[in-house]
Amino acid sequence: MGYFSDIIHGFKTLLTGMKVTGKYFFNARKEIITQQYPDNRDTLTFPERFRGRVDMPHNENNEHRCTGCQACEIACPNGSIEIIWDRVLNPETGKKKKAIEKHIYHLSMCTMCNLCIVACPTDAIVMTHEFELAAYDRSDLTFVLNKPGSKLMAGVEE
């Protein structure tokens, strides 16, 4: 009898669905994911893959990992990354090499899509957890990511 087995099957699937949502409801106390943001500003916790503004980490010797390959600039759908680079003479080898002068990041155009981070072959840029990004002036939304006087970390290019 297809008719009655259909009904029983239907109820089974309905109960399966209710079991799933019920599990969430009865455990809701323990695993609520929303945070009371302005209240817990000091103790705010971030999910692992949270996407804040893009930044370039530097180590203690003021060295970054950016080779100036411009992969991020090409990957960015909004053109929010602009790299000014030059060929710099390497004193050891005597050859001219590409190096960044300024890694310019326009936050005003960024949608936090993560594509530049995916594109970067040397993991030079990361998504930070910084999200309170409002500014009074549009020019405050343009950042130069490499710090002044910084240079490429040794061994990144190999």
């Binding site: 949502t21 969430y24 409801f25 809701a28 695993e31 609520i32 929303t34």
Partner: peptide, 10 residues
């Protein structure tokens, strides 16, 4: 409130 708990919200 109950909807929120079902969706693990507050």
């Amino acid at each position: 409130r109950i909807a929120a708990f079902f969706q693990v919200r507050l």
